[in-house]
Simulated assay, not measured.
Amino acid sequence: MNITSLYAPVHIDDSSVVGEQCVFGYPKEARLRDEQRKPGSVLIGDPVSIGPECLVANQVVVYEGVRIGAGCVIEDRVRIGYNSTIGERTRMVYGAYVCDRVTVGADACVAGFVCDGTTIGERSTVMGELVHEYTRPHEGWWGADEEPPVIEPDSVVGYGARVVGGVRIGPRSYVAAGAVVTKDVPPEHVVTGVNIHTPAVEWPGRRLRGLLQHWQSMPSSRTP
């Protein structure tokens, strides 16, 4: 079925299910400001596409230019900002707040806060906060274009963890719940506390043993 809103054309595959009180194709701020400056002009946003066999729950807000791949689950109260891409079979959960121009790979799971321009790799889980450094507030809200975090494939950012600035996590790295990351995390490391990095092969804990063994068995793993 094809739906044309006041702001952006929307295509939702016939096999997908959509809940109640959802908004699709909402225009980005710049487009709304242009309309305010030129009243009566027609707002035509970038198209929204939702692939086959998706489940979109209630009170979901999807801005213009968003592309959602096949088989995704978008839970209640999720927000996806403009020109973002969600890979196939990904789950957006717990009211995730995804800002603008975010790229999420296939088979990922995302909750928490994800800042503009972030990249989240395939099969990764993000339950914490991915934020900019915000070191130049004097330049205005739109004046500074800061580097976002990059979460490489098969990595985990635990609940309540915070990744700050243009740092790179992984691949196959684990940021524990409540940890703070302001430095790059090498492949196959565990992060606890504030920037405490432990190679996965040296991790003494039992609870991550199954995950670490799984990483080691992967063909792309760099662990001997």
Rank of each mutant, 00 (worst) to 15 (best):
Y97D: 15
V98L: 14
V98K: 11
V98Y: 09
C99Q: 13
C99S: 13
D100S: 08
D100N: 09
R101V: 01
R101Y: 05
V102R: 09
V102N: 08
V102D: 10
T103K: 11
G105E: 07
G105D: 05
G105R: 04
A106S: 15
A106G: 12
D107A: 14
D107Y: 15
C109W: 03
C109Q: 07
C109P: 00
A111H: 07
F113V: 12
F113L: 13
V114Q: 05
V114E: 06
V114S: 07
C115W: 11
C115P: 08
C115S: 14
C115G: 08
D116Y: 01
D116A: 02
D116I: 00
G117V: 07
G117Q: 12
T118H: 03
T119H: 09
I120Q: 11
G121N: 05
G121Q: 04
R123M: 12
S124A: 15
T125A: 08
T125M: 11
T125Q: 11
V126F: 08
M127A: 15
M127V: 11
M127R: 14
M127N: 14
G128M: 06
G128E: 04
G128W: 05
L130M: 15
V131Q: 15
V131T: 15
H132T: 04
E133D: 11
Y134Q: 15
Y134W: 15
Y134A: 15
T135C: 06
T135D: 09
R136T: 12
R136A: 10
P137A: 11
P137S: 11
H138N: 12
H138S: 13
H138I: 12
H138T: 10
H138W: 13
G140K: 09
G140H: 08
W141E: 12
W142G: 02
W142Y: 10
G143L: 04
G143T: 06
A144Y: 01
D145S: 01
D145Y: 01
E146C: 02
E146N: 02
E147C: 04
E147M: 04
E147V: 03
P148R: 12
P148L: 13
P149M: 10
P149I: 03
V150I: 07
V150R: 08
V150N: 06
V150Y: 07
I151H: 08
P153L: 02
D154P: 00
D154I: 01
S155C: 02
S155G: 03
V156P: 02
V156G: 03
V157L: 06
V157I: 14
G158I: 02
G158D: 04
Y159L: 12
Y159P: 00
G160I: 00
G160H: 01
A161G: 01
A161P: 01
A161N: 00
A161H: 01
A161I: 00
R162E: 02
V163W: 01
V163C: 04
V164T: 13
V164I: 15
V164G: 08
V164D: 07
V164R: 07
